[in-house]
Amino acid sequence: MNMTQNLTKGFFKENPVLVLALGLCPALAVTTSITNGLGMGMASTAVLIGSSTLISVIKRFIPSNIRIPIFIVIIASFVTMIDLTLQAFLPELSKSLGLFIPLIVVNCMILGRAEAYASKNSVLKSVVDALGMGIGFTIALVLISAVREFFGTGALYGYPLFQLMGIEGFKGSIMMILPPGGFLTMGLILAFMQWNKQRKEKKKEVK
């Protein structure tokens, strides 16, 4: 597998949220607007890149019996750094993500990449893998939050689309912003992914 494939596999083919179903809690909880989804995706990507790099650098010195606690401590340190950085420079984003910033620690995507990839591969490969997976995670979050923000408020990335087109009086469905909307959007996106996959398989059979 070359570097480009290594980078892009996380985007769609092995997307952590939409295909591997990892890191579902933040993917549903903070995706009420694109700003939040993007912020969460980027924060998680930063933690993922940091922890994958460090774990890959020191992988020879980690005794395999206690590797999981060591991974968790490394990840938790990066999460604390990101948490403090966000509080200092982006206090509003930090406030709206709230509880879910410290909870990046228990995002199974990050521990999963550390265990399955960074602890076995070279530093450069791990960084590329982490970047790809992080971007894939961000893509998934932005996709979910775009659907929810559009149907919930009629806006995209804070721009009120309907008012800009001159349509007054559009009222979003509050349900999409509330928790049920998160589950529903996720279910429909997963159903679309499955439909797409089955369609491709059928095409192959015909050939």
Binding site: A21, M175, L178, P179, P180, G181, G182, F183, L184, M186, G187, L188, L190, A191, F192, Q194, W195, Q198
Partner: peptide, 23 residues
């Protein structure tokens, strides 16, 4: 179920309905 909803997707749609009730 429709083929494409089997497994995870229907689980999420179901939880959306339960969440709506809890709302």
């Amino acid at each position: 179920l429709p083929e494409s909803f089997k497994g995870l997707p229907i689980a999420f749609v179901t939880s959306a309905l339960i969440a709506m009730a809890f709302l």
